[in-house]
Amino acid sequence: MSASYPSLRFSSAHFAAAVAAILVSYGSSAVIIFQAAQAFGSTAQQISSWFTALGLGCGVLTLLLSLRFKAPVMVAWSTPGAAMMVGMSGIPLGQAVGAFMFAAALMLLVSATGFFSRLVALIPKTLAAAMLAGILINFGSKVFVSMQSQTGLVLLMLATYLLSKIRFPRYSILLMLVAGFAYAGFAGLLHLENLHWQPPTLQWLAPEFNVGVLISVGIPLFIATLVTQNVPGIAVMRAYHYETPATPLINATALGSLLLAPFGAFMMNLAAISAAITMGRDVDPDPKQRYLANIWLALFYFVLAALGGVVVSLFAALPKELLWALAGIAIFGTLLANLLAAWEDEATREASLITLLASASGMSLFGIGSAFWGLVFGIVVYHLNRKLQRR
């Protein structure tokens, strides 16, 4: 190792957490990105460019920011933004790219002016923990939903995870992964016929700027990314006591999006749910060493960038129950830690409860998801209760 990092000590727990995070990240959204690219009329080669640019951008930013701040910073893409764009047909790809750049420029402006940091400072840590717990409950419950269709696979993964924690707690996620893949292979659940090779490519997608598209695509993409990705992303880091300054993180992701948008990287941002997988005690007892999992994560991003358009078919080859079980089991420790943190302060417990319930509900108002509204309702109740207590 370099003399600059004498205390680096990689372990299989770091590797396993990174595998879980990358599988959850790609497995839950790769198909959505594919559909969004198709909605704007992208060719197969252009779709490959989308995935190559996103993998490279997220990998570089995850690596540089994690090393710079010695914190587990995970950069991903705006899944809510991609989902929103799936239904936007009839917009030329060039005009869509112009809107991506406009949304990134707005994010950079909001961050550089200090507005984003002031927004995050308004969120008590207990409410941030409750919001994350509410989101993660849905992921955790999918473990048991997936048992209905693949009982043997999920029971084996769950049993391996729980039993290995008795003697090998730091390797429990890795052993669970191995058990799941081994079962899927022997049971014929790996659909390798779905794998199709397509070389990576970076294709310049010339931006065009149409005022109507800037408003109809760029502004919703900016808002969705701000309130459902970047705000929760910082809140998750604060819940784990990482006080990394928000401004340079948001500046970096916004600038990266602005530069790579003409290649298909529609919007990069801080990850929240998948990022939490690399922040728990199971990853490393020492919080200062957990960022090592994100170095592995960056390497996986680079590998998937090299795969380009084959990413979608790669995840199509895995049984969905394996992905659900992996996502759910991997966040058990994180979910428990946030449930405990949400109730630490007696004065905020009612606000935390409302935040958790609203975040877990899956509701959507005005096109904005439940995580944002959970925080809004929780903060309103928090300030209301403070006024009542003062009186």
Rank of each mutant, 00 (worst) to 15 (best):
S2I: 09
S2E: 15
P6I: 01
S12Q: 15
A17I: 03
A18G: 05
S28K: 02
A30E: 09
Q35N: 07
F40Y: 15
A44T: 12
Q45K: 09
Q46I: 04
I47G: 06
S48I: 00
S49R: 01
T52Q: 06
A53V: 08
L54V: 06
L56A: 05
R68D: 15
K70C: 12
K70W: 14
M74E: 14
A76K: 05
A76E: 11
T79P: 06
A104C: 02
S111L: 08
F116C: 01
K125H: 10
A133G: 01
G134M: 02
N138T: 03
F139M: 08
S149N: 09
V154L: 13
L155K: 09
L155P: 11
A159F: 10
I173S: 12
G185Y: 12
L189Q: 13
H191L: 10
W197V: 04
V211F: 14
G212M: 06
V217K: 00
P220H: 05
P220V: 04
L226S: 04
I234C: 00
A235I: 00
Y242E: 13
T247S: 02
P248T: 01
I250H: 02
L260S: 07
A261E: 14
P262Y: 08
G264V: 12
N269F: 00
I277H: 11
P285F: 13
D286A: 01
A293T: 11
A293Q: 08
W296T: 03
A305I: 01
A306S: 07
L307N: 08
L307R: 02
G309M: 05
V310C: 11
L314Y: 12
P319R: 06
L326Y: 04
A327L: 11
I331Q: 08
N338T: 06
N338E: 13
L339T: 01
E346P: 13
A351D: 12
S352M: 05
S364N: 07
S364V: 04
F366M: 10
G367C: 02
I368H: 03
G369D: 14
S370M: 02
A371I: 00
L375K: 03
V376W: 04
V380M: 08
V381D: 06
H383T: 07
N385H: 09
Q389I: 04
R390W: 14
R391Q: 15
